[in-house]
């Protein structure tokens, strides 16, 4: 009998291909999704207007341009909507069909999300990169080693966000409607990840709270690697923190799944 892990690895190319096909099928929904990720551009307009009259704390106008365009890129590459999918499938009982297959649903959702990333970035990322290089190039890091760390950092940011959202979706095993809990999560995410504004512009106590949560590792860390030149040791430390959060988030997601599944009622299915 071939091992389950090897079987899963062999299935991934097919799952990615099917995920791509689904992404293309849901194109209207997709365009709406792309439009919903433009919050950084709104914040960009707001803060550059403020900074035009002089630097706001340490941020000049071009710093804001670099920050929010970097945020737009990272958000497009790391965003996930798995919590909504998981909770809906649990609530409606359609999760049953996934449970009948010898593949962990977390892997199935992950591959379908990964397949969608190139399409999600199709419009936003080229525009953001062009603007970033033309308008905010002076604020970018130029250290190739630091830029190279950006790739694992974005991957870890995606893993942390995806796993936390998967765990959030698993709350539907316990409470039928998770949208209120989801709203709390996304409020905290918006503030503590640096999505709405740079963490160093927040009151120091909020920054300290944020540092104790996984949110900065989802978005803020890759953005900092892109726009804040730093010592290599500091960059590696940020990456190590992300790695630890990724392990913790995966453990949380798997535990939430295992515990929650005992309460699954497979209603209507």
């Amino acid at each position: 009998m071939r091992s389950a892990a090897a079987r899963t690895v062999r299935a991934i190319p097919t799952l990615l291909r099917i995920g791509l096909a689904e992404t293309v099928a849901y194109r209207a929904e997709f365009i709406v999704w792309i439009l919903t990720t433009t919050m950084p551009l709104i914040m960009l307009g707001l803060w550059t207007t403020v900074a035009d009259e002089g630097p706001f704390q340490a941020y000049r106008s071009e710093d804001f341009v670099a920050y929010y365009l970097a945020m737009l890129i990272v958000r497009n590459l790391t965003g996930s909507w798995v919590a909504w999918q998981v909770s809906e499938e649990i609530r409606l009982g359609t999760m049953s069909m996934r449970l009948l297959r010898p593949l962990h649903p977390m892997v199935a959702f992950a591959t379908s999300h990964l397949a969608a990333i190139p399409f999600r970035g199709l419009i936003a990322i080229p525009v953001a990169v062009a603007l970033l290089v033309s308008s905010g190039a002076s604020a970018l890091t130029h250290d190739p080693a630091q830029l190279a760390l950006l790739i694992p950092s974005i991957a870890l940011g995606w893993i942390i966000g995806f796993a936390c959202l998967f765990a959030l979706g698993c709350l539907a095993f316990l409470v039928t409607q998770t949208s209120a809990i989801g709203n709390i999560y996304f409020t905290l995410f918006g503030i503590l990840s640096g999505y709405l504004l740079p963490l160093d512009l927040l009151p120091s106590w909020i920054s300290r709270v944020a540092a104790c949560t996984p949110f900065p590792s989802m978005l803020g860390t890759p953005v900092r690697l892109l726009v804040h030149p730093m010592a290599r040791g500091d960059a590696l430390e940020l990456l190590a923190i992300q790695g630890a959060w990724a392990v913790g988030a995966i453990a949380l997601a798997l535990t939430a799944w295992r515990v929650g599944l005992r309460r699954y009622e497979a209603v209507g299915a």
Binding site: R7, R10, A11, T14, R101
Partner: peptide, 12 residues
């Protein structure tokens, strides 16, 4: 046909 291809991969 796409579901069949997916099941083929998942069930190995």
């Amino acid at each position: 046909a796409d579901t069949y291809a997916m099941n083929r991969a998942v069930f190995d």
